[in-house]
């Protein structure tokens, strides 16, 4: 665990709180892509199936392999899962009438199918858990695409939405730094799957980062994209 990794996780956690706070405070999820949020629930569901492994060790009192890092990861995984499901739940129940569904036109199969095929071909081990983990890594990299498309469609995002986008994009960028740091300091075989996907994910946010900083510098309330 290094400073970049912990900062990344906290930024990721912050992103959920920003989004939930925004939706609760404004009683609206306008400008937020339901499809992107739905993809995040799928990402975490596929990636964190090893929670059952930890649960199995706990209920059999097999604590020998449970380290501080396991407990930290387990705690965060449960939080991420709970937060992402709660967001999807909010967007489909009390905030449904404010949802931008009509403009949220991205076709999910266009990312789901390639990610599934890639996960079946490029994986570290041909097991169900490993393939689902790999699928989740690929899907997370591109899951923001419906959100970006909605942002381009509407041409602007309110302040909290753009802070949310910054937090989600920044988290993976910090993970890139974490991987470089680990590569340099640990006898750690590099995980090319995560590296490449993480790079793609951060690159997808690159354009957004640029407009975010321009907006912050100019002190505008809303982020406006050039049309």
């Amino acid at each position: 665990m290094n400073i970049f990794r912990i900062s990344a996780d906290l930024l990721h956690l912050a992103s959920f709180f920003i989004l939930i706070f925004k939706m609760k405070a404004t009683k609206s999820c306008k400008g937020i892509s339901f499809k992107t949020q739905l993809m995040y629930t799928l990402v975490f569901t596929c990636r964190y199936l090893d929670l059952f492994h930890v649960l199995g060790m706990m209920i059999t009192f097999n604590f020998a392999h449970i380290t501080g890092l396991t407990l930290y990861n387990t705690f965060m995984k449960i939080l991420f899962l709970a937060a992402s499901y709660y967001i999807v739940y909010l967007m489909r129940t009390e905030l449904k009438s404010t949802s931008d569904d009509a403009r949220d036109t991205f076709v999910l199969w266009h990312i789901l199918a390639p990610c599934a095929v890639l996960a079946l071909i490029f994986n570290a081990q041909f097991t169900i858990l490993e393939i689902l983990w790999t699928f989740s890594i690929y899907l997370e990299a591109v899951a923001v695409m419906p959100q970006l498309m909605l942002l381009i469609e509407t041409g602007e995002a309110d302040s909290l939405s753009s802070h949310y986008m910054f937090a989600v994009g920044g988290y993976r960028a910090l993970y890139l730094v974490n991987w470089v740091y680990r590569y340099a300091t640990e006898p750690y075989y590099s995980n090319w799957i995560a590296w490449i996907a993480g790079f793609v994910q951060t690159a997808l946010f690159g354009d957004f980062f640029y407009y975010y900083f321009v907006k912050i510098m100019s002190g505008d309330a809303a982020l406006k994209l050039p049309t």
């Binding site: 492994h53 570290a124 081990q125 490993e130």
Partner: peptide, 10 residues
């Protein structure tokens, strides 16, 4: 080995 346990990141 590349078992799921080896994924020590989130």
């Amino acid at each position: 080995a590349a078992a799921a346990d080896d994924h020590d990141e989130l």
